[in-house]
Design a protein around this nucleic acid. Structure first.
Length: 436
RNA sequence: GCGGCCAUAGCUCAGUUGGUUAGAGCACAAGAUUGUGAUUCUUGGGGUCGCGGGUUCGAAUCCCGUUGGCCGCCCCA
């Protein structure tokens, strides 16, 4: 058997697999275009430092990284955000605002494989730069929703959980915590859904047990599932920052409601996302049944462009991974099966007939029709079966009898009717068939 | 990085307490049928039973290692 195996976690796309992938990409592109986003691409291989700068050293363990022949430390990209920040940062002053960009690209992470996760995967990334207000979040959450709905998914299938790191920050600040402690509490909040009370262990180890009254307030905040509940909890605290932030929330949820998207969006302050670089609203899309990993995730990262050497530029973005998404489509029966069916299949008698057929085949293909024929001599019966199996609508029959009479027989493979047409008129007749 | 389960044809799998030349269905290909389709029949190609070692007269089967896969944990930029 095969001496060489595919590297673990990598995928091969046989024609059927690729047609499914292309289907997904096609609708994503179409949707992003409808929302006014421009497509870009960038290198697969980047300087290792690009990822270190952003996220610290632990990340290195999950990077495909190595030293190139010029002695440079490089890594296959594990995500698009640092790259797009560099691209935008480099030309920020000359780009028209708002900057609305998207890409569909492959990423690599050295991880243990599991359902919905491999060592290479594709992501749809969309970002808006230069817009500090929640208008950008409205646009992106709408795009995210439509990127899933374009495939026939509905609010029965998925939802978007919306949270806010800023709000958490302001809230915990008002409770008297300093920044280091706030970050530790957010770490616990992030893990709370999975681990329950154990999530606070890491905090306790670092700073001692969280004071009981404080913890109760954190847990209360974490359970909040609606804007009115949020307003009720924050009202007694007051303060300008919180008031302004609640204004952003109203604008965001009001905008989404006006777009008819409120049925997809759930307030859920239990989501904070592990990534250190998020600075404001964060959101994640999940399947409703809760069987799969996150479908998409994103949020605001207003500091990152500057951290990576660009100008100060507010930014929001999200990414949809292809693996979990494809699983969901298959589960819901929304993944079409694609057949590479020709329009026309030619049934050919012998060598002389083959030469006659070639002229028409060339002409039809030049006109854009998908035309196929047997490369070898095959019995007529077989050829008709092949024509039928191929999914072609028409069969053109080039036999000895036809050749003598100067005609070609056209068989409608759907209703099995046949007609004769003069050799010179084949292309025109085929076009007529397909345009009528 | 940690743990559980698994590995036989392109796919889905069978293979008895260890016993002769490892099987079936599907798929693919050829023929029956050198001019008309989803049926049928016949035939064929394709396996060092994931790989390596051990036990044994004898291993797909038992043992050890290894690689790979699925699932969970960690992580998820």
């Amino acid at each position: 058997m095969a001496t060489f195996q595919t590297l673990p976690g990598f995928r091969e796309f046989y024609p059927e697999d690729l047609s499914r992938r292309n289907h997904i990409f096609r609708l994503w592109r179409q949707t992003a275009g409808a929302y006014g986003f421009a497509e870009y691409d960038a290198p697969v291989l980047e300087p290792l430092d690009l990822y270190k700068t952003k996220s610290g050293d632990e990340i290195e363990g999950q990077l495909f990284s190595f030293t190139d022949k010029g002695g440079r430390e490089v890594a296959l990209r594990p995500e698009m955000t640092p790259t797009v920040c560099r691209l935008v940062g480099a030309k920020a002053s000359s780009l028209k605002r708002p900057i609305k960009w998207y890409s569909i690209a492959e990423f690599y992470r050295y991880e243990r494989m599991q359902k919905g996760r491999g060592r290479c995967f594709f992501q749809f990334n969309a970002d808006i730069f230069g817009e500090p207000g929640p208008e950008a979040e409205i646009e992106l959450i709408a795009l995210l929703t439509q990127c899933l709905c374009s495939f026939g998914l509905t609010e029965q299938d998925f939802y978007v959980r919306l949270s806010d790191r800023n709000l958490w920050f302001y809230y915990l600040e008002a409770l008297g915590l300093d920044e280091v402690r706030i970050r530790a509490v957010l770490g616990a909040v992030d893990k709370f859904e999975k681990m329950g009370d154990d999530a606070f262990k890491a905090y306790a180890e670092q700073f001692g047990e969280l004071e009981v009254g404080l913890k109760a307030k954190v847990l209360e905040f974490l359970q909040i599932k609606s804007l009115p509940a949020l307003e009720a909890v924050l009202a007694p605290i007051g303060g300008e920052k919180l008031a302004a932030r609640l204004g952003d929330w109203r604008k965001l949820l009001g905008g989404l409601a006006a777009m008819g998207l409120e049925r997809f969006v759930e307030v859920d302050l239990g989501v904070v996302r592990g990534l250190a670089y998020y600075t404001g609203f964060v959101f994640e899309a999940f399947d409703r049944k809760g069987e799969l990993r996150a479908l998409a995730g994103g949020g605001r990262y207003d500091d990152l462009v500057q951290k990576l050497g660009g100008p100060a530029l507010p930014a929001v973005g999200f990414a949809i991974g292809d693996m979990t998404f494809a699983l969901l489509l298959e589960q819901r029966g929304l993944m079409p099966t694609f057949v590479q069916a020709p329009d026309v299949y030619c049934v050919i008698g012998g060598e002389a007939e083959r030469r006659a057929a070639f002229a028409d085949i060339q002409a039809l293909r030049a006109m854009g029709y998908r035309v196929d024929y047997p490369l070898k001599e095959v019995a007529f019966g077989k050829q008709f079966k092949t024509a039928s199996d191929s999914g072609a609508k028409l069969a053109l029959i080039y036999g000895a009898e036809e050749l003598v009479k100067g005609i070609v027989k056209i068989r409608d493979l759907g209703d099995r009717t046949e007609s004769e047409v003069a050799s010179a008129n084949v292309a025109a007749t085929v076009r007529e068939f397909f345009t009528s």
